[in-house]
Simulated assay, not measured.
Amino acid sequence: MEVKMVQKKVYDQEFKVQAVKLGREIGFSKAAKELGINVDTLYGWSKAVREGRLDLGPGTHTPETAMSLTEEVQKLRQRNRSLEKENARLKEENEFLAEASAFFAASRRKSPKV
């Protein structure tokens, strides 16, 4: 039995940007077909643009797609709160692991060697 290894294609930032721009101009299905990529991949990049994870560069936002300064500040504050929560959780986990490590190290020194 032959096992085929599927290699995941990696696209650079510029390719993704140009692909999304093309998709917006001629339609995502047609652009994906022309570029030889899966349409779902192209939709994923488009979603990344909407979420602010992929920047199309200056002059690409319309008044409808651009965030207001207030919206951007709110989004950044929300992200900051989320990161602060995650940071606090990770600190607690690190404290627990340090205490557990010390406990097991101490119990190991006390136990008789066999």
Results as ranks from 00 to 15, higher is better:
1 M>N: 05
3 V>C: 11
3 V>D: 15
3 V>Q: 06
4 K>M: 11
4 K>P: 07
4 K>W: 12
7 Q>G: 11
7 Q>A: 15
10 V>S: 10
10 V>F: 11
11 Y>P: 04
11 Y>K: 11
11 Y>D: 07
12 D>M: 00
15 F>Y: 02
15 F>E: 04
16 K>I: 01
18 Q>G: 03
19 A>N: 03
19 A>V: 08
20 V>F: 01
22 L>A: 01
22 L>S: 03
23 G>D: 07
26 I>R: 05
26 I>S: 04
27 G>W: 00
27 G>V: 04
27 G>Y: 07
28 F>V: 00
29 S>G: 12
29 S>M: 15
30 K>S: 03
31 A>H: 00
32 A>Y: 03
32 A>R: 01
35 L>Y: 01
35 L>A: 02
36 G>P: 01
37 I>A: 02
38 N>F: 08
38 N>C: 07
38 N>Q: 09
39 V>E: 09
39 V>H: 08
40 D>K: 14
41 T>K: 01
41 T>F: 12
41 T>C: 13
42 L>V: 01
43 Y>G: 12
43 Y>Q: 06
44 G>R: 14
44 G>D: 13
46 S>W: 08
48 A>E: 13
48 A>P: 06
48 A>Q: 05
49 V>K: 00
51 E>V: 07
52 G>P: 03
54 L>W: 00
54 L>A: 00
55 D>C: 06
55 D>K: 12
56 L>M: 03
56 L>D: 00
56 L>G: 03
58 P>H: 07
58 P>K: 10
58 P>T: 08
60 T>K: 10
60 T>L: 10
60 T>G: 06
60 T>H: 01
60 T>F: 07
62 T>W: 05
62 T>Y: 05
63 P>N: 04
64 E>F: 02
65 T>K: 00
65 T>D: 05
66 A>H: 12
66 A>S: 00
67 M>R: 13
69 L>S: 15
69 L>K: 05
70 T>M: 06
70 T>H: 08
71 E>M: 05
72 E>Y: 05
73 V>S: 00
75 K>N: 00
76 L>D: 07
76 L>G: 07
79 R>V: 07
79 R>Q: 06
79 R>T: 08
80 N>H: 13
80 N>K: 10
80 N>R: 06
81 R>N: 14
82 S>W: 06
82 S>Q: 15
83 L>C: 03
83 L>F: 11
84 E>W: 07
84 E>N: 05
86 E>S: 08
86 E>G: 02
86 E>D: 10
88 A>M: 04
89 R>D: 14
91 K>S: 11
91 K>Y: 10
92 E>H: 08
92 E>A: 14
95 E>R: 14
95 E>T: 09
95 E>L: 15
97 L>T: 01
100 A>G: 11
101 S>H: 13
101 S>A: 10
102 A>F: 14
102 A>Q: 14
102 A>P: 07
103 F>W: 12
104 F>C: 05
105 A>F: 04
107 S>L: 13
107 S>F: 15
108 R>I: 06
108 R>Y: 13
112 P>W: 06
